[in-house]
Structures are given as C-alpha cells and as structure tokens.
Write a protein that binds this DNA or RNA. Sequence first.
DNA 1: ATAATAAGTTAGACTTATCTAACATTAAAA
DNA 2: TTTTAATGTTAGATAAGTCTAACTTATTAT
Lengths: 244, 244
Amino acid sequence: MAFFSFIENGQVNSLDSTAFLKNCYLCRMITYTEENYLKSILMLSEGKDSVGVNLLSRELNIKMPTVTSMMKRLSEKGLVVFDPYKPIRLTEEGRLQASLVIRKHRLTETFLFEKMGLGWEQIHTIAEQIEHIQSPVFFDKMDELLNYPSIDPHGEPIPTKEGKIITHPYTKLSEHKVGETVLFSKVGDPSEKFLILLNQKELKLGEKIRIEAVESYDNSFTVSYGANKKEVFSKIIADKIWVE
Amino acid sequence: MAFFSFIENGQVNSLDSTAFLKNCYLCRMITYTEENYLKSILMLSEGKDSVGVNLLSRELNIKMPTVTSMMKRLSEKGLVVFDPYKPIRLTEEGRLQASLVIRKHRLTETFLFEKMGLGWEQIHTIAEQIEHIQSPVFFDKMDELLNYPSIDPHGEPIPTKEGKIITHPYTKLSEHKVGETVLFSKVGDPSEKFLILLNQKELKLGEKIRIEAVESYDNSFTVSYGANKKEVFSKIIADKIWVE
DNA sequence: ATAATAAGTTAGACTTATCTAACATTAAAA
DNA sequence: TTTTAATGTTAGATAAGTCTAACTTATTAT
C-alpha cells in the first residue's frame, strides 16, 4: 500500500492513495451538486459579494438546513467563507470554480443555439446538465468551433478560461424615457416561459427598440421595433429587458 | 394533500403525490447509475441473453455485493429478472431502456466525431457522460443533423428510437485466411489505448485489408492496406478487428 | 464423490445529498 | 424596548450507491 503526504494547516497528513484523494484539498474534486451551489452563489452574490442561506435555498429549490450543511462542506474544501448566521462569500478558488462552471454553461448554450439550431428557450435546461461534463477537450472544441465567443445567446458574458467575467453596464428598458432608441442586449430571465413570450413578440437580441410611450399609471411601455412591430410591455417585462 | 392510486400485482395502492412518483412503476425514473447497469447488462448478455453477477461486476468496476443489491432494485422496478444465484436477464422494458441509453451513447459519439471533429479515441469517455442527459429534443436534433445515421464511428449499430438493434454479422480478422481481402467494419475494443494504436497504424474504418501472411507459431497476421501500408498484427489485435 | 475454487449473498458500515421538526439568532415592527 | 417575524442552525431520518468481511451455493478438478 502506497502512502502519500501533504501539509495542511501546518499539520503533516499521511494517507493511503484513496484517503489521500479524498482529503488533500489540492486533489479534492468538486461534485455535480457542489458545482450547482457554487454557480448559484456567484450569480446571487453579484454586487453584494455575499448571499444569505435563505436566498440560496430558494434559488436552488433546496431546504435551508441542507444548504447550511453544504456550506460547511464547501467551507472545509476552501471554496466558501462561512460563519454561522453570516452571509456566504466565495473564496478566490470558489469564485474561479464557479466561473468555470458558468463558462461551460454559457459555451454550451451558445453551441446548442449557434451550431445545433435549438431554440433559445430550449438551451438552458440542456446546458444545466452538460455544464457538469468533465472533459476539457470537449469544451475547448466547442470554444474553437464557435470562434471563441464572449457573449451567449441571452446576452450574458462567457467567463474566460481564467475565470474572468466581463460585465457590460447594461440598463433596464424600464429605466428609459419616451423617444429613446435602445439596443436589446441581454435577457433578464432565462426561463422558458419568458423566452417563449419574447419569441411570440418576435423580439430578438440585438433588435433596436424605440420607446413610443410610457403609461404613467402602471409604467407599461409601448415600443416599436423590427419591421413594423408595435407592442406593449408591462413594467414586469420591461424590467427583464436589458438594453444598451 | 392530493392522493393518487394505481394497481400493481392486483393490489390497489393509494399514495400522496411524492410517494406516488417514487412507487408507481409507470412513473419510476431510471437513475444515471441504473442506466449504466442496464447498458452493461445488455452489452454483456449479447448472444447468451443473460449475464452473471461476477462478469457485470468486472465490467462496471463495482464489487459483487453492490451489483447484487442493485439487481434487487432493478428487479423491483421490473427492468430485470433476477433469482438469487441465477444469471441476470433483462425484461422487455429493461431491454428497451438499455437500448435507448446505447442509442444516446452512439448518437453522441457520431456527433462528436462527425460534427465536432473530435478523435475517435476521445469520443467514448465524453459520450459515457452525455448519454445520461435527459432531453429528447437534444438527441433528436443530433439525429437530424447527422441525417439519421445507423452506424457509429466504431462501426457499432445505433439502436432505433423503438430500441431495435440491427447487428451486422461481421467476422474477426483473425478468422480469415491468407490471400483474402476484407473490409474493416467494426472496432472490437473502444478503449483509448486500442484506438490510439489504430491511429498510429493509420488503419481507419472502411479500409480494405489484404492478408499477406499468417504466422502459424503465434497466429500473427501480416496485412497490407491503404496506400502502401504493411503491418504485423498479433492475434490479440487481429481478434479486435471485425471485418466483412 | 468429495475437496477446492469460483461465484454469489448477507450483514453492517460509510458518504452524499436530501428532508422534517424543533430550536436559536437576527431583524423588523409595534 | 419588547414582541413578532424572518432567517438560520441542530438533530435525527432517509434513500442511493458504494464498500469490506463473513457466509453460502455452485462448479470444477482430482
């Protein structure tokens, strides 16, 4: 039986190969489930830099006690900083890993949309599964075939291989005024329902939108775009349309 | 709380929605792991129509007691017929589900090879993961883009959507005689190692192979193919090359 | 025919990922 | 400021999937 050693917290640990792979933080693999937690933490902590257990629990559709116990595990693995009753923050390593999962997700969405011709309302759920595939060549090949894209079909930035995420300073359609013409740049809700709604309205990413009127009573927007399209978007919808 | 009922073995079962989904055999989902067991059972029981626990255990790299307990589960789910100390057989439903997993695997391999330009030594491990993706549209789209292929890049048949597998009656190169010319039609070992060996020998599927000599001492084959290629294949290799 | 070997099973333990019920802390409201 | 509501944690249970050690059945060889 071969033994391996590593130093952690100033302690020398000697373990057989199986135990080594499970315990040495350099070797610890991130599970499918852990990847999902990391991804959600990164996306929810945008801006604030931290998330509460409750919010994370809702996002993942997982009960709070489960989230708490997972946070202990991720904390032991050095991927998050977690103190009881305090919000959760990613470590440097945690942020990198989360970014790489998001990279795989968005590369996949782009591939499914651009190269396979699937609808933008279909690609999210498929990418949620493919993002966990373990195969660098597979994603590198996608990247190459797509000619190293930087934005996915919903207008979200694709993180670089180094985990860097370039965020564009888009604004909500709802924040603009009558008479302005803006460019539809990012979808604010990746749900199938919302994307099917946009399909029905024939509103595609990159479309020029002109604000014809704003009803002050309910903040609904009357807009025109494309070849002769004229639609009314409620505040709820106008909040989910990011523009430039 | 809503209650649902179903009849199984002449017994009426009434359950709440969660328990219903877990217990009604019509609704029971097949897990990632279960799919792998089913796939291996089908592949190993080719010909004999049944497999032993030991063989299955070796194929899956999983210890025998684990296999036994999984067989009990699959048997309860109506996917295999399992009597203690007897070999394992798939039920009609089990065979269908196994075929559909193999279909997804081989469609994926074909897609990775034909549409993404990955090497045939790389595609197997990626397809092992993608075969478990749950998304009919995704695989239907692959099928369509590949123009409904019937054979994968290793020469294996792709099961139909109905689970039918058309097996070609290929023979091993090792069974042929000096002077014969045969067509390389199927790879007998999908391992990376073997495929890299074939790459090095520049032997591709569909190649015409002429048997120049057979050494009776060790049954090695001297063959020629392609533009001026001449190679010696040991019995071990000649057994893994299926021809027509 | 019986001993040895291979194949298969049982029992019990462990890890991951989840849950519910009960308790604790923090924040918000009265 | 105290009560209430929201948020978070502990404890204990469960299911899936795996293991090892010990036992049982079947097969093979002498």
